[in-house]
């Protein structure tokens, strides 16, 4: 449940910002979460709701935008979307770091984001 750590970090940052700028009511927090991050959105929302109670963030909505993964291959210079492992047993395709072009090990260049993008508040 690292979602709790992440939710705590969101709330801490936003409340700090609110206190500094004398903001009484936060309406919405928009997050960027990379495809390569093992973050469970439902759990994150649940933790967020629980921690924001009785704060300036109470009842604010948490919007999550996914950032697609991208890789680059040091062997064949491929750049772009990663290869997915379409395993019959998995409920959804699994992202891999295997180069879709040459099959060697690729490096991720995008998809590890976990950041607050914007905050909407009432003055």
């Amino acid at each position: 449940m690292h979602e709790f750590s992440i939710a705590s970090s969101i709330v801490e940052s936003v409340l700090e910002f609110a206190a500094k700028n004398k903001i009484e009511k936060i309406l919405e927090v928009r997050l960027l979460v990379g495809e390569l991050m093992a973050v469970e959105w439902e759990q994150l929302r649940f933790c967020y709701g629980a921690i924001t109670r009785e704060t300036a963030m109470e009842n604010s909505s948490l919007e999550i935008e996914q950032v697609e993964a991208a890789v680059s291959c040091p062997y064949c210079s491929y750049r772009g979307r990663p290869k997915y492992w379409e395993d019959a047993l998995a409920a959804f395709p699994i992202v891999t770091l295997q180069c879709p072009q040459c099959g060697m090990a690729a490096e991720s260049t995008q998809g590890k984001e976990c950041a607050i993008k914007t905050i909407r508040y009432m003055a």
Binding site: E113, C114, I116, K117, T118, I119, R120
Partner: peptide, 10 residues
């Protein structure tokens, strides 16, 4: 209602 960009990595 104000929007602010934070780009704050968690």
């Amino acid at each position: 209602i104000y929007d602010i960009e934070l780009e704050h990595s968690l």
